[in-house]
Structures are given as C-alpha cells and as structure tokens.
C-alpha cells in the first residue's frame, strides 16, 4: 500500500502530461486541417483548456521575446516606454473580450459553442503566430535590410494565418455557414466595442460614486472639527 501510492501518483502525472501533450499537439493538426480539426476540437474533446492556456502563454512569451531579440533593423523598441503588463494586456484583453462578445452574441443566434469552446478554439487558432514569429525573430538577426522582405512575409503570415483560422474555428464551433460566420465575426468586433464602452462607463460611475462618498466623509470631518 505504502509502496504503491507514489508509483500510482507518477502514473497519474504521466497520464495527465500525456493528455496535455496530445491536446497541445492537436493544435498542429488544427493548423493544417482547420475544418476537420476545429470540428473535433470540442466535439471529440481533443483540445483542453490547459493546452489553450499554454498557447496563450506562448503568444505572450513570443511577443516579449520579439521585443528583445528582433534585430533593431526591423523592430525599434523604445525601452523607456515598454511596460510588460501593458504588453500582456494588449493580447489578453482583446482575446478575453472577443471570446465573451462572440459567445454572448452567438448564443443568441443558434451558435453551438459554449464560452469554453470559443476560448479553446480562439487560442488554438493563435498557434501559427507562435510557430511563424519565432523563426522570423531568429532570422531577423541573420539578414540585412535588403533581405528584410523575408522577415516581413514571415511576420505577415504570423498574423494572417491565425486570422483565417479564427474564422474557420468560429464556423466549426458554432456550426455556421461562411457568410454567417463572417457577419458574426464582424458583429463580435462591434460587441467588443460595446463591452469596452460599458466597462468604461461603469468604471466612471464607480469612481464618481467613490469620490462622492469621500467628499461626503471630508465634509463631515470638517464640520465636526
């Protein structure tokens, strides 16, 4: 009994890791077989939230890595103004708001995906960004300005590929036609704007509310003294 428990634990850990690895490897399949891949992603439970989280983490890491390691000829970074949290939020905030906006909208219009599905699919669609940005960053240190077109093509693909994959993913997750997907992707962007607007209004209201109570408190304190 005492001898068996550690081995069972390691077995469970290995199984867990194996599942994570398989889920992560599935992002490559999604990349190359977007229609098939994204259909099975949630329906066959081939993807997992942990793998999606890892991909998002990798996107953040690659972004930060590119700031530091891209040759100065192709990316000029003004370090005094770089804020690591801002850099992370620049990815996480749009991603989160898109997932929520898309889910909120599609659940009203016969979308089959849950919020979890939307998040996993969107994150998996970002995988090519990591795979194309990394070589672009490394390559930028071995080419001259004249050969810069190689770098620009790679970094262009790194953005275009995920964009196309997201459309594919949304189509498969929600079981939409292409036209409907394009419409609702556009509408999702609109929904994102609405969410941001409401968030700002709420923040303003809350800060005004707090300011009101603070001034009330001050007034009372001044009167009492």
């Amino acid at each position: 009994m005492t001898a068996a428990s550690p081995s069972r634990r390691t077995n469970r850990a290995r199984a867990c890791f194996g599942r994570f690895g398989a889920a992560l490897r599935y992002s490559l399949y999604c990349m190359l077989h977007p229609f098939d891949g994204f259909w099975d992603l949630t329906r066959e439970r081939r993807g997992s939230v942990s793998a999606a989280n890892f991909i998002v983490f990798m996107v953040l890491a690659v972004r930060l890595f590119s700031l530091k390691q891209t040759s100065f000829m192709f990316l000029q970074v003004y370090w005094p103004r770089v804020n690591i949290f801002q850099q992370c939020l620049a990815v996480l905030l749009p991603l989160g708001v898109f997932c929520v906006g898309n889910w909120a909208l599609t659940s009203l219009f016969e979308g089959k995906g849950t919020l979890r599905d939307v998040y996993i699919a969107t994150s998996y669609a970002l995988a090519p960004y990591v795979l194309f940005s990394l070589p672009a960053i490394l390559l930028s240190n071995f080419i001259t300005v004249d050969e810069g077109v190689i770098y620009s093509i790679l970094s262009f693909i790194a953005v275009l590929y995920p964009a196309l994959l997201i459309i594919c993913a949304m189509m498969q997750i929600h079981d939409y036609t292409l036209g409907k997907t394009l419409l609702f992707t556009l509408m999702s962007v609109f929904a994102m704007l609405v969410i941001i607007f409401i968030a700002l209004v709420c923040m303003n209201l809350v800060s005004d509310g707090i300011a009101y109570f603070i001034s009330l408190y001050r007034e009372i304190v001044f009167r009492l003294y």
């Binding site: 100065f72 000829m73 000029q76 001259t144 300005v145 004249d146």
Partner: peptide
C-alpha cells in the same frame, strides 16, 4: 548598432 544605423549596419553585416 549603437546608433541604430540600419543601412551601414547591413553593409557591415553582409
């Protein structure tokens, strides 16, 4: 590299 002169840097690097 210090002055971020990419044109001259490219020539030297080539």
């Amino acid at each position: 590299r210090v002055t971020r002169d990419s044109k001259n840097y490219s020539d030297a690097f080539k």
